[in-house]
Design a binder for these strands. Structure first.
Lengths: 192, 192
DNA sequence: CTTGATTCTTGCTCTAGAACAATACTTTGT
DNA sequence: ACAAAGTATTGTTCTAGAGCAAGAATCAAG
């Protein structure tokens, strides 16, 4: 099966695109695999690409002064993921991007990407959508995770990303929610 | 003095624009004033416009289930502000937008705005910049305000928005930082 | 200028969740 | 299949910051 199929559907859902048009864009995306725990981007590097997940998952996280990992986003199937801040500003990344599991993905270099944004109306819309979604997701997160009790955060996560609790290791979930793994472990029993 | 001057400078900083070109865009922006505490947008309404602050300030906030105000953003001079989520999705706003002080601003209706985004390359860039900034700001906020002690949050705010502590009422600062006014009051003495 | 209404400060108590510690359970590589 | 490392659970203690209460200061409207 065509490795570009998911990407085609993703774009086509945003703005209908015909096969010919799509075939002009798709060669800019390169198929790659990452092993479990493999780093896609390390802190200090400038983010050079945008990734589209076909199978598996990435996590985006930072390590704060006290040495703790803070996860900001899980990129699952059919999602774009990158470090937008580093990509846009050309600044060194404060984040790591790491494959959680064995992951298959498409990679597009930022120069190709931004060339397409400027030249292809379809692509301009794709970028707009990535930005809009990134923003909306992050807003929801700010509002949801602020002032909620740890249990309510967990319930929210469970509803919003069904099945994530079994798929992603607990310590990562805890880090995403901003609670300790101990607290999470205790709360999981209260969930049912 | 020309009421569009600040807007001109804002856009010109992003992508150089000549006066003629600017004068085609500017009539879409309408000068308005809001009194202290006046609402620009209420929860439940669909956000119809984007605002550019000339003088004064808006706050964007939500009221959660327990009746507490949660402020997400202060729009000060020379900043665009709107409820992007409602604007993009056309969904009812979960937020209020309210003038904190007597405020002068420019307003552009969303249909005009998005028409310009599609037809003017300058404007497309302006929108991109608004989205990018909104995203970057919100990311910084997530990382900064998560896992930091209340005192460190306050120090960060003070550095990042110098003078805001004297200009904006304390209870709003507390709400922005996600701490109680009581805690904020105690911390302010520890600041020096 | 006065008065009522917010807003801010400060003291005291209480609690959700962090920190630490020890044990049990899973993975992963050889 | 086994050892070693990583991950999750559970009990106990401790603390930052919430909640409540009461007084002081500031503000805004007639």
């Amino acid at each position: 099966m065509d490795q570009y199929q998911s990407l085609f559907e993703y774009i086509n859902r945003l703005i209908p695109i015909d096969r010919d048009e799509f075939e002009k864009l798709s060669p800019n995306f390169h198929f790659q695999k990452a092993k479990r725990k493999e780093f896609i981007l390390r802190e200090g590097e400038v983010c050079q690409a945008i990734y589209f997940i076909l199978k598996g998952s990435f996590r985006m996280y930072q390590i704060n002064e006290s040495g703790q990992e803070m996860i900001r986003y899980f990129a699952l199937e059919d999602k774009f993921g990158t470090n937008l801040t580093s990509l846009i500003e050309g600044s060194p990344s404060m984040e790591f991007i790491q494959a959680i599991e064995e992951t298959e993905f498409l990679k597009i270099h930022k120069t190709d990407f931004f060339r397409l944004v400027e030249t292809s109306p379809h692509f301009n819309k794709v970028y707009r959508n990535i930005l809009e979604n990134a923003y909306i997701t992050s807003q929801k997160r700010i509002y949801k995770l602020q002032g909620m009790s740890a249990l309510d955060k967990l319930k929210w996560l469970n509803q919003h990303y069904p099945g994530i609790l079994t798929r992603i290791p607990s310590r990562m979930i805890a880090s995403y929610l901003g609670i300790t793994p101990f607290t999470l472990s205790r709360l999981k029993s209260e969930l049912n």
